[in-house]
């Protein structure tokens, strides 16, 4: 990616600890607009913590987050959502009692312009507003081929489909930056292939910038434009997939070679 354009997301000197236990230490990297960036590293390397910092679930003790030209000490979840950051979770965080359609519609909540009084009386902007949100939700449903399960409560769906619905809920917000925490965890090869395809399409069709965490190195190498490697809360690699794979520190961390 060209270096002349300011990156969409830029982390600088982020440190995060929980009651003195360091999860992330002095990490900084840039994510260019339109790229797919993979965060990789062994379990406990601080990947999920870092995603949580980016969208405000955790507030780092040190560092700065610059997103879309605005620098912040830390994000708040709501702030991040308004700024255009959407995400999925490692352990699916869907609204289990609601249908697929309703779950995806909740992703549109920030786009809703009518007040609750208008909604109660079905007056003013309420009707047009609801139609507009439903139109977007239907687009997402069609894009992810979820039509058959539109009215099924998500709690009744199999795991792979729930992952897809969660992606749908994030997509419905039309985010600028999409954070995916292990979107393919626990999936078989066929499901992984399908999910990679969706991720690539989201990136190409909507131009959404994506940061994802993934363990399957094959998938990462194939999918991403940019890889950041973490180990023990520190960054040990950052660059194009092929270049990163060749770094000795990465090989050591990944293949469990002895460290000195």
């Amino acid at each position: 990616m060209s270096q002349t354009v300011a990156p969409l997301l830029s982390l600088a000197h982020i440190s995060l600890s929980f009651k003195g236990v360091k999860a992330v230490t002095d990490i900084g990297f840039d994510v260019a607009e339109g790229e797919i960036c993979a965060l990789i590293g062994p379990n406990g390397a601080g990947k999920s913590s870092l995603l949580n910092v980016i969208n405000g679930v955790y507030q780092p003790q040190q560092g700065e987050i610059r997103f879309a030209g605005r620098a912040r000490r830390a994000m708040q979840p709501h702030e991040a959502a308004v700024a255009g950051i959407a995400r999925t979770f490692q352990n699916i965080a869907l609204f289990k009692g609601m249908s697929v359609l309703d779950n995806i519609l909740t992703g549109r909540n920030l786009a809703s312009r009518s007040s609750w009084l208008e909604q109660a009386f079905r007056l003013g902007r309420a009707e047009a507003d609801e139609e507009a949100q439903r139109a977007v939700a239907e687009e997402v449903i069609a894009f992810l081929r979820l039509q058959a399960w539109r009215h099924t409560p998500v709690g009744q769906l199999p795991y792979g489909l729930q992952k897809r619905v969660e992606l749908g809920r994030a997509l419905a917000a039309r985010p600028r930056l999409l954070l995916l925490d292990e979107p393919m965890a626990g999936m078989n090869r066929e499901e992984k292939r399908e999910m990679s395809q969706f991720i690539r399409e989201v990136n190409q069709v909507f131009g959404t910038t994506i940061v994802l965490i993934e363990h399957d190195i094959g998938v990462v190498m194939e999918l991403s434009d940019h890889v950041v490697v973490l180990d023990y809360g520190r960054k040990i690699g950052d660059g194009e997939p092929a270049a990163v794979r060749a770094l000795p520190e990465v090989i050591a961390a990944y293949l469990g070679q002895q460290r000195h």
């Binding site: 979840p77 959502a81 519609l105 920030l110 609801e130």
Partner: peptide
């Protein structure tokens, strides 16, 4: 109301409030 955006927000908060906060 329960079929509107507010109603969905209510159910979202009911089912998982951290996820509800993350989607705004």
């Amino acid at each position: 109301l329960v079929r509107s955006s507010l109603g969905r927000n209510w159910m979202a908060v009911r089912d998982m409030d951290t996820a509800a906060a993350v989607i705004g």
